[in-house]
């Protein structure tokens, strides 16, 4: 297996200001997109909470590099990047779980409605026949 980074490959110099800029841009555009979706009523407020929260968290960490480094040492991550990736992973997991719960609720309601429609339909049919 060839190593990901071979000897002699150019290693990009770490440019913190660029990292920060990209993170800020990402966070701001995420905020804008989510808010715009809410404005157009394409996204219900109840589902936007996790997205907004994540965008804000990203923004805070991007603006406050010391905070990111402090957080990294807190969770035992070796680099600040790991912290960001880890955070993204946790976010996706939470989002997936939230969807599963919502789906379960939706299924429950759908079943109940289907049942109710069926029962009412039969009652109607019965009445039509006896009237």
């Amino acid at each position: 297996m060839t190593p990901l980074l071979a000897q002699g490959d150019p290693v990009l110099p770490v440019d913190h200001s660029r990292q920060t800029l990209v993170a800020i841009l990402l966070a701001v555009s995420m905020l804008l997109v989510v808010l715009e979706l809410i404005r157009r009523r394409r996204l219900r407020e109840e589902y936007s909470l996790l997205w907004i929260g994540t965008a804000l968290a990203l923004l805070v960490l991007a603006l406050n590099r010391d905070g990111l480094i402090w957080l990294s040492s807190l969770i035992g991550a070796t680099t600040p990047n790991t912290t960001l990736f880890f955070g993204a992973l946790v976010f996706l997991m939470l989002l997936g779980l939230q969807f599963s719960v919502r789906l379960s609720r939706l299924t429950y309601r759908m079943r109940k409605l289907t049942r109710q429609v069926g029962l009412l339909e039969e009652e109607l049919r019965r009445r039509d026949r006896t009237d």
């Binding site: 759908m110 079943r111 289907t114 049942r115 429609v117 069926g118 029962l119 339909e121 039969e122 019965r126």
Partner: peptide
């Protein structure tokens, strides 16, 4: 008597 589920909900339902 009949009750119809307009979508298939499964045996238990």
């Amino acid at each position: 008597r009949t009750v119809r589920h307009h979508v298939n909900l499964g045996y238990g339902a």
